[in-house]
């Protein structure tokens, strides 16, 4: 089977597994709703700066929770089976694609819920939405590899957070800047540099993941 075929069937497998149990989606959506609601109870009304920061913090924690399980939800034996029938590149690529799909869905849900509960002050909604999409893709590409690394250690959730935060902060700085530009409704040309840098980082991250994962999975 070619790489593309393998990736296709692995992503389809992940989606089917998720569709049957709906476990991850439901729990993360519930997590999102309750976090937004807790924040609403705590803040009641926020100015635009806090609105933006709060949204990204909520999304960050939700995505860490969602993605940290991407390599541990299936048993060791089943993973061994996958490794024997598919190439490691196909496995990491399929996980990245699956996580991107998951994260795009989750971030859209988060954006809608957040906009309903808090008032939406965005000046350029299309650009903000684009920033949210770009952010969810960035979270997915970075966290997939980190969750692969942390799944090799025993105590998963702490290590995941420790490893993921320093790596995601540069991306988060760019995302915050891009989204606050959108929030203020600035001219779109002024956020061009952030978008290009973010896309470049994503490409680099995926390439490095592809190169490094073959060393990671064999035990």
């Amino acid at each position: 089977m070619s790489l593309l075929k393998q990736v296709q069937s692995l992503v389809a497998k992940d989606l089917a597994l998720e569709w049957r149990s709906k476990n991850a989606i439901n729990s993360i959506v519930l997590y999102l709703v309750s976090t937004v609601f807790v924040c609403y109870q705590a803040f009641e009304s926020v100015d635009t700066l806090v609105w933006n920061a709060l949204f990204w913090i909520i999304l960050l924690f939700a995505s860490i929770n969602a993605i940290s399980r991407s390599f541990v939800q299936e048993s060791q034996y089943r993973q061994l089976y996958y490794y024997s029938i598919a190439s490691p590149k196909a496995i990491i690529l399929s996980k990245i694609i699956y996580n991107i799909i998951l994260m795009v869905f989750l971030s859209i849900v988060a954006y809608v819920i957040y906009s309903i509960i808090f008032k939406n002050p965005v000046g350029d909604p299309l650009l903000y939405f684009f920033a949210v999409l770009l952010g969810s893709i960035s979270f997915a590409t970075v966290f997939t590899m980190v969750s692969g690394i942390s799944s090799k250690t025993g105590n998963n959730s702490t290590i995941m957070a420790i490893l993921a935060f320093p790596v995601i902060i540069p991306l988060l700085i760019l995302l915050l800047k891009l989204s606050s530009n959108a929030l203020k409704g600035l001219d779109r040309a002024s956020s061009e540099r952030e978008i290009i840098t973010l896309l470049a980082i994503n490409v680099i991250t995926v390439t490095i993941s592809l190169l490094l994962f073959p060393y990671l999975w064999r035990d």
């Binding site: 690394i149 250690t153 490893l163 320093p166 790596v167 991250t205 993941s209 490094l212 060393y215 990671l216």
Partner: peptide, 12 residues
């Protein structure tokens, strides 16, 4: 595994 993390983190 730490080598993998080290290389992964460096471009960032």
């Amino acid at each position: 595994i730490s080598a993998v993390y080290n290389i992964f983190a460096f471009p960032i």
